[in-house]
Design a protein around this nucleic acid. Structure first.
Length: 324
DNA sequence: AATCCGTCCAACCGCTTTTGC
DNA sequence: CGCAAAAGCGGTTGGACGGAT
């Protein structure tokens, strides 16, 4: 049983907006505002459109100060950096780019920026094996994340550390209390795509298929793979933290982690071990941007490598992916 | 000139989260 | 606290467009 449709599908117009519809919507909102009720708005404005459609049209196109056209290098850098840290949270990324909409950024990433980075990746001829990094990335719940942003908390420290995935407690105790954090939009603290690429990886998976960029989008209904997004589908109780240095997987209520890279003795480590209890918060705060960038490419390697939490129900197949 | 193919982006869909009662 | 409705979000789709063949 699905939920009731938000509008009468038979009586609403779909497809591209006409200039007339645009002006009607614009005029109405400029005059009366949205009234906090998008569902009722189209009728009041004399539009045969779904409220959601009106909202989207307004937010993505008609709203004042919307910036269209070419993205600047600075915007590129911000998008790359934020994507590396928080993944495809386009609305949050958009919040850092005045005048840009989440839809715009999403489209830009999917159609241009990702490819641009891929080209750089292939040019860099550098394809280190997975599981080589040394830091954590860490998911935060959407609530935590949004509250972080509401607090205008920086994800860039003056030392270049990237902190978006620090556990909230750590963030609060450490970075949030720092008076000297700086805004993400300070481009001097954001790496250029070129410098990012020097640490990027790509992973040929399934023969010649190269995955790159965003989290993998997998069917959630057919059980093939759960869509992974930071703090959305995954309930907090399901969250396991997995980072560049350690991957955690739940299995039958046991938590496992994949250690990789080198241990303190300089030995190469790449093995599954059971996770000690209370493991969550013990993550280094320093989140080196070089490592962050690696996420861009490696995050899409599969459902598990760098995405940070595992749905318990999907554990088996994900573990398989790890061994793929 | 016609067709094919790839790119781009507005809009839709369905899900999660938030809000209000 | 639980439920339903609305808002918000991100993935996907479809069509317009331009370049290549």
């Amino acid at each position: 049983m699905g939920r009731a449709p938000c509008c009468d599908k038979a009586n609403v117009k779909k497809g591209p907006w006409s200039p007339d519809e645009d002006s009607k919507l614009k005029e109405y909102i400029e005059k009366y505002g949205t009234g906090g009720n998008w569902i009722a708005l189209p009728q009041k404005a004399g539009l045969r459109r779904c409220g959601k459609s009106c909202r989207l049209r307004w937010l993505n196109y008609l709203r004042p100060n919307i910036k269209h056209g070419e993205f600047t290098d600075d915007e590129d850098r911000i998008i790359c950096s934020l994507f590396a840290s928080i993944g495809s949270r386009w609305s949050i990324i958009a919040a850092q780019l005045p005048g840009r909409t989440d839809n715009d950024i999403k489209n830009y990433w999917n159609t241009k920026l990702k490819k641009k980075l891929m080209v750089m990746t292939s040019q860099s001829q550098r394809a280190p094996p997975p599981f080589t990094s040394s830091h954590y990335t860490q998911p935060v719940s959407s609530q935590s994340l949004s509250s972080l942003y509401k607090d205008s908390t920086s994800y860039f420290t003056p030392t270049g550390s990237f902190t978006a995935f620090d556990p909230m407690s750590s963030v609060q105790s450490d970075l949030l209390n720092k008076g000297n954090t700086t805004l993400a939009t300070n481009s001097s603290l954001i790496q250029t795509p070129e410098s990012l690429m020097s640490h990027m990886q790509y992973f040929p998976v399934k023969e010649n298929f190269l995955m790159f960029g965003s989290e993998p989008s997998c069917s959630s209904s057919d059980g093939s793979c759960s869509q992974i997004s930071y703090g959305r589908e995954i309930k907090q109780e399901d969250m396991s933290f997995q980072g560049l240095g350690t991957s955690n997987v739940y299995e039958d209520n046991h938590k496992f982690m994949l250690n990789y890279g080198t241990n303190s003795g300089g030995e190469n480590v790449n093995q599954w071990t059971e996770k000690p209890s209370g493991y969550y918060g013990e993550c280094p705060l320093d989140y080196d941007l070089e490592d962050v960038k690696r996420l861009i490419s490696s995050s899409s390697n599969n459902c598990c490598n760098n995405n940070n939490f595992i749905d318990e129900n999907k554990t088996q197949e994900k573990v398989m992916y790890y061994y793929y």
